[in-house]
Simulated assay, not measured.
Amino acid sequence: MIKGAWIVTALIGCDQGATAEPPPKEPPAPAADDGRVEKRGSSESRNTAVEEEGLLIGEYRLAPDPVIDGDTIRVEGIDKSIRLLSLDTEERFHGKAERAAATKDFEGYLKMKRGDAKRPRKTGTPMGEQASEFAKAFFEGAESVRLERDDPKEIRGHFGRPLAYALVEKNGRWTSYNVECVRAGMSPYFTKYGYSHRFHNQLSHAEAEAKQAKRGIWNPNAQSYGDYDERKAWWDARADFIRAFEHQATRESNFILLSHWDAPNRLEASLGKEVVVLSTVDRVKHFKGLVRVTLDMQPKRPLPLIFFDREVFNESGVADYQGEPVVVRGRVERYTKGSYSTLQLVVDDVAQVTTPKLPGEI
C-alpha cells in the first residue's frame, strides 16, 4: 500500500465507477471554407449521440427560447446546454442591481467586479446583452442546427456541457455561428482552452476583420470589458502551452490529454507505466503527511496527484496554477481499499511538473 493512501480514500470516494466501452467512430465531417461546410445528411436527434466519438454530433431542433447567451444555446434531445467553441461573449446582466450599477458608472462597475483578481473576470455588460440579441437573430427561423466538434475525443467541458460548433443552413449552405459571432465583434477568438484545430484560420481572419471595422467589442465606444489585450495574451499563452503538448502527443504514445473522453481507459491500460498528462489544476488540499492536487479529467473523474514531500510541492509551484493547465509526468499507480479503487500519480521530484509561462505574475 502506498504511504498515506488511506487518507486519499476518504477524499475521493465519489470518483468510483467504470468507464464505458469505446463507441464506434463517426466519419470525419468535411473541412469548412470561411466558416461554412457543405450540407450532409442529418443524424437522429438523441442524447446518446452526444457521447459517441466523432466530429459530427448531428442535427437537432432548436429548443424553445434556445439562446441562453451569446456562447450557449439549447437544443431538443440533449440533456444540457451546448457550450459553443472558440467563443467567450460577455455576460448578460444578472439582476436589476447589476444593471443599475453598470448604468450609473460603468468604469467603476468594472473595477468593482474585478476587485484584486490577478486575471480578468467575467461579468454582465451591455455588450453581453447585445451578443445575446445577435445570437437570437442568427438562429431565428432556423428549423435545425448542426453540431460539430473540434476534436472527436473532446466531448464535454468542465461543467459537463457538450462542446460544439453550431451551423445553420442559410442560402443552401451551412454557416458557422461561431465564426460569424467573431466576425460581428460579439466575441474574440477564444483560445483559453487551446487553438481551434479545424477553424483557426477562419476565426483568426474573422477577428481581424471585426477589429479593422471596429465592430462590437472592438469599438472604442462600446461598453465592454475593455481589457481584451490582457485577456488575449493570457489565453494565447495557455494555447501555446497546450499546442506544444498536443504536438508531442502525436509522436509519443504515453502522452494523454485528460480532457479526452478515453483518458480514464488509457490510464487504466498504462497501469505501472510512465505517462505524461495535460490538464487543468482543479483543487489543492493539504493534509497531514501529504498534499493532494486533483487534475480535471473526463468524464468528471479527477486524477489525483499525491505529494508526500511538501518541499517538492512548494517548489513545483502548482499551488499558483489552480485553473491553469499543467503537464505532469509520473507512473500510474492504483490505490485500493475494500471495494474502492482509483488511479493516481505520485510526484516526488519537482522535474515531474511543467507549468506554462503566463504573462504577469501568478
Rank of each mutant, 00 (worst) to 15 (best):
I2L: 15
I2W: 09
K3Q: 11
G4F: 09
A5I: 13
A10I: 10
D15L: 07
A20I: 00
A20S: 01
P27L: 13
P30C: 14
A31Q: 06
K39L: 07
K39A: 02
R40T: 11
S45V: 02
S45M: 05
R46N: 10
A49H: 10
E51N: 13
I57E: 12
G58N: 08
I68A: 09
D69E: 08
V75N: 03
V75E: 06
E76K: 11
G77I: 00
L85R: 00
L87E: 05
E91K: 02
F93D: 11
F93S: 11
G95K: 06
K96M: 15
E98V: 14
R99L: 11
A100H: 10
A102W: 01
T103Q: 14
F106Q: 09
F106D: 06
L110K: 15
A117K: 14
K118S: 10
R121A: 12
K122S: 14
P126Y: 02
Q130W: 01
Q130H: 05
E133G: 05
F138A: 00
E140A: 13
A142F: 03
E143L: 13
S144A: 11
R146Y: 13
E148P: 03
R149A: 04
K153R: 12
K153A: 09
E154Q: 13
I155W: 05
I155K: 02
I155S: 07
R156G: 11
H158C: 07
A164K: 05
A164S: 15
Y165A: 00
G172T: 06
R173V: 15
G185L: 01
M186H: 05
Y195Q: 07
H197T: 05
H197E: 14
H200F: 14
S204K: 11
E209S: 14
Q212H: 10
A213W: 05
N219C: 08
G226W: 06
D229I: 05
W235Q: 03
A237Q: 04
F245V: 05
F245R: 02
H247A: 07
A249K: 12
A249W: 08
S253R: 12
L258G: 09
A263R: 03
R266W: 08
L271K: 15
D282L: 03
D282Y: 03
R283T: 08
R283M: 08
V284T: 05
H286Q: 12
H286F: 15
V291G: 01
L295K: 06
D296T: 14
R301A: 10
P304K: 07
E311G: 07
S316T: 13
G317W: 12
G317V: 12
D320G: 07
Y321R: 04
Q322I: 13
P325N: 08
V326P: 01
R329E: 08
V332P: 04
E333C: 13
Y335V: 09
T336Y: 07
K337M: 11
D349E: 15
V350Q: 12
V350S: 11
T355M: 06
K357N: 12
E361G: 14
E361P: 00
I362H: 09
